[in-house]
Simulated assay, not measured.
Amino acid sequence: MGVAQNSEPKEEALALFEDYAPTIEEEEGPILYKRPVQGDLTGDGAPDVLVEFGIGGGGTAVLYKQVAIYLNTDDGMQVVGGFEPEYCPSIDRIEGGTVYVEQLEACALPHPETVATHQYVFDSGRLKRRP
């Protein structure tokens, strides 16, 4: 695996996400929020990207969030899966192959409190909670 040569990883991941966004919105509802977080998920030295996004229900409130996982390959960024925990996630950072995720009290609140922080690692095509 290598770093994509033609664009920045965040920009490339967001462009791929935007291409797929209409399908998500058709199935889930409007995407009201998206935020890329960059870091090395696989230990290969290439920056990978998580795109956190929020789904709304008609107003301006985010009802729930999901995360799309993009790996940096020799062919550029490739979506490899998603992450949908049973809580409202906020990706804090990717550091040393570990994804730090804040568990928010609720997605629909304007300024939710963090109730816990969880650690995940990328393994077998998905994020798994670190033991």
Rank of each mutant, 00 (worst) to 15 (best):
E27G: 08
E28S: 14
E28K: 05
G29S: 00
G29L: 09
G29H: 07
G29W: 09
P30F: 01
P30T: 12
I31F: 02
L32M: 01
K34Q: 13
R35E: 10
V37T: 03
V37P: 00
V37W: 02
Q38G: 07
Q38W: 08
Q38E: 13
G39L: 10
G39A: 08
L41C: 15
T42Q: 12
G43R: 08
D44R: 13
D44E: 10
A46P: 10
P47S: 15
P47Y: 01
D48C: 12
D48I: 09
D48Q: 13
D48E: 06
D48A: 07
D48T: 04
V51I: 06
V51Y: 01
E52P: 01
E52G: 01
G54M: 09
G54E: 05
G54F: 02
I55H: 02
I55Q: 04
I55S: 03
G56C: 02
G56S: 02
G57W: 13
G57R: 05
G57C: 02
G58S: 02
G59T: 03
G59D: 00
T60Q: 07
T60N: 11
T60L: 15
A61D: 14
A61I: 04
V62L: 03
L63K: 13
L63A: 14
Y64L: 12
Y64H: 09
Y64V: 09
K65P: 04
K65V: 11
K65N: 12
Q66N: 13
V67D: 06
V67A: 06
I69Y: 04
I69E: 01
I69T: 06
Y70R: 08
Y70E: 04
Y70H: 11
N72P: 01
T73G: 03
T73F: 11
T73S: 14
D74G: 14
D74W: 15
D74L: 15
D74Y: 12
D75A: 11
D75I: 07
D75T: 12
D75H: 11
G76P: 00
G76E: 04
G76Y: 05
G76W: 03
G76N: 06
M77Q: 11
M77R: 09
Q78D: 08
V79R: 13
V80K: 08
G81L: 05
G81R: 08
G81P: 11
G82A: 04
F83K: 09
F83C: 13
E84A: 10
P85G: 08
P85F: 14
E86T: 12
E86D: 11
Y87S: 05
C88P: 01
P89Q: 03
S90P: 03
S90R: 05
S90I: 00
S90Y: 09
R93P: 15
R93H: 14
I94T: 07
E95Y: 14
E95Q: 11
E95N: 14
G96M: 03
G97F: 04
T98R: 09
V99N: 03
V99D: 04
V101N: 02
V101W: 15
V101H: 08
V101R: 11
E102F: 12
E102K: 14
E102L: 11
E102H: 12
Q103T: 01
Q103I: 06
L104M: 00
